[in-house]
Nucleic acid binder design. Sequence first.
RNA 1: GGGCGGAUGGCGGAAUUGGUAGACGCGCCAGACUCAAAAUCUGGUGGCCGCAAGGCCGUGGAGGUUCAAGUCCUCUUCUGCCCACCA
Length: 834
Amino acid sequence: MKRYNPKVIEPKWQKVWEDTKIYQAIEDKSKPKRYVLEYFPYPSGAAMHVGHVRNYTIGDAVARYARMSGMNVLHPMGWDAFGLPAENYAIKSGISPQEAVAQNVANFKHQLMQMGFSYDWSREINSTDPAYYKWTQWFFILLFNKGLAYQKESLQWWCPHDKTVLANEQVENGRCWRCGNLVEKKSLKQWFFRITAYADRLANDLDDVDWSEAIKAMQRNWIGRKEGINITYHVTNTKTNNKITVFTGRPDTNFAATFVVLAPEHDLVQKIIKQEIVPKDGPSHSKEVEHYVAKSMGKSELERQEEGRIKTGVFTGLYVKNPLTGKNLPVWVSDFVLAGFGTGAVVGVPGHDMRDFEFAKQFNLPVKRVVVGPDGDKSPITKAEQVQERAGRMINSGPLDGLDIQDAIEKMKDLMEKKGMGKRTKSYHIRDWLISRQRYWAAPIPIIHCPKDSAVPVPDKDLPVVLPEVKSYEPSGDGHSPLANVPEFVNVKCPKCGGKAQRETDTMDGFACSSWYFLRFADPHNDNKAFDKPKIDFWLPVDDYIGGAEHAVMHLLYARFWTKVMFDEKLIDFDEPFTTLRNHGMILAPDGKKMSKSWNNTIEPDNLIEQGYGADSIRLLELFIGPWNQSANWSVEGLGGTFRFLQRVWTLAQEFLKAKENSKGHNAELETQIKRTVHKAVKKVSQDMTELGFNTAIAALMECVNELYKLKSDRNFELARSAWEEGFIALSQLLAPFAPHIAEELWADLGQSGSVHVSKWPAWDEELVKEELITIAVQINGKIRAELLLPATVTEEKAIEAAKKDERVQKSLAGKKIKKTFYVPERLISLVTD
RNA sequence: GGGCGGAUGGCGGAAUUGGUAGACGCGCCAGACUCAAAAUCUGGUGGCCGCAAGGCCGUGGAGGUUCAAGUCCUCUUCUGCCCACCA
């Protein structure tokens, strides 16, 4: 008898699948299309571990099930290969990024192949291939021509370790997302994509996609749209006319305003320092303000965090008038006000805002109260805990008195607009996407700077702007990429006037390349266009996008933005790229920590395969270990369990194949039992697959095999040959999405032609699935007292009659009168006594 | 501070959405096979009491609704993730 040996069968079938190209996707309109995509990986020098493998296993199970269910499936794979790790490796080792990436890609591809994933490798793409980034550059020019790519000098996040600027999204707690070093602010001329122009659509359209609420919330939170009002206050004590505009979402509390605070970066603050604005009725505070601003701007992000919530600030000597009350409000400067949000100025309402309260306490500013809670308590606010009040009624607020907060907000906005004090507006947290990088290993920005014509896009015929080979990849740190040291690259003629000009030497953020790769898979080898529209029309949008939550705000937001731009350009007919987004849970090391090289706790599939477990057992555990969207700790013992299960399937099938030649008559009851067992599994697995219930689907398969083990014997194989055979055929199909190699081997052993992976998913017979006898529980006053084994066809009357006759029921009733009776078909009977 | 989750045996997790809590797997215990071990197969396995039949308790905690609550409601404790001086 053949032993189950994954080391033999797995490479064998992988070769067959490759040779027969069974996973190749073609535009066949006779079947509904399904585009299943996992985020294309970054091929790092470190090998892929079982955590990464889970993502692909989920995607592959979805793709394989869709394929067997009669869908035309596109399931492609490629490489997101630009970026710092390859470049830093090059600096250390002297091996060029081009070479290192080629090696890493080969390694990753080998790892994916040995897991038996059903990718259409004919569509493999690589973001660092000039044939690919040619079109990334083409899209840059499209954005440029639409005014959506622009250059601006401003203060930006700068990572002193990686020597490049970073996008807002790439700064985490004041640290670089790549290397973890503290970032600084540096004033540089940089390229931006105007994602803010799409902020409303990016927020609104989240309503229409099938994504988890968690990810939607993260995106909404990042876009940070807030409806409010810009209120303009006039400065009362300067000779010149000066105004301060503040943004607020709570204008209802304005009767309690007691001060105004400016961010240190605010324009007016600079004018105060330069003494362009001075109070006419008192001393100038310009020196104090200058001192405070200098100190505050010199603080690192870390220092600010260490200070916690302790408020600092300085009085400017200026006052503004609150037209509602006629009272003057002092104007302060403090770094708790952020220059980047709203107008960079806030009105201080310490009675109804925690930060304002803390600031007021620090500098002895008055605290007023205009909202009372449901308890009607009107006592003055003296503690920070009393500040938050979401529900309540207005007091001391003239025309607003008696209104609840929501009504008061709207009424105050109306009032302010009527009086010319303010204007309704929206404020956003999202900033334009900074895409310049001062590093080598990335796509060059296709712009030529001409003294006469300023920034000129590289003409289409000259694309791609190929990344030149250089001797040193080391970034200079002076704000220029290493490309600035390549005169042949830099010095060119202006495409417009033909005069001397210089190429842009900044490169593009790697997220630009990944903002459209899912489109390229529809037409991966097109030299004349980024893609052919009919092919996009056929395959896109992506039906199932499977990836980790780490892409929640960066990649997913950028890709949606590019998609909307292309939609507006009529290049494509949809404006959301990913219909369904599925965020898998992370696989942690057995110790519960994240798998990483530095913890030295990574588990790689290569070793497990080498040890003899095989890809199928690994794949099975990735799915069986828990719900696909929850994280789980990898379990070495668990892998033994899934291996054992496959071995049991194998042994059972081989024993049958050996015995089946001697067919000796029929046993109808045995045949029904076998069929019922298998059909129950077909039903359960089919239903679970539609909701991605992989763990319970696999449990059902295990249960099925356990039951078949109880029925198996040489004699039973002989007495129900065809039932067993049909059963094994169905079993190999049910296993196919999870354990494709053993499924294919069984399929072949059973003499089936073709591949199990393009066979038609089995159907179940509802009549067969039904049990003949069912167990009905009997509750008396809410407690289970008996279980009745009754025919499935039993009527309510008969069931209740049987319950009342039951010895244990009678004992429990002890002669009491039954007041009420409940009957749940096929489940239970509930009897209630006095 | 804001947003979104979660809490079920020794462990990972099931539970037709209000209807027999603990499917399936791991681990553990026992038996078969073996000179022995491994492997494999079979059975058992929430806690407490009991020889047993059976009984009582049990889904973080406290209440409530209901014939019936892991599931619904109120309060509460702990915990994970994301964002965060966002006005």
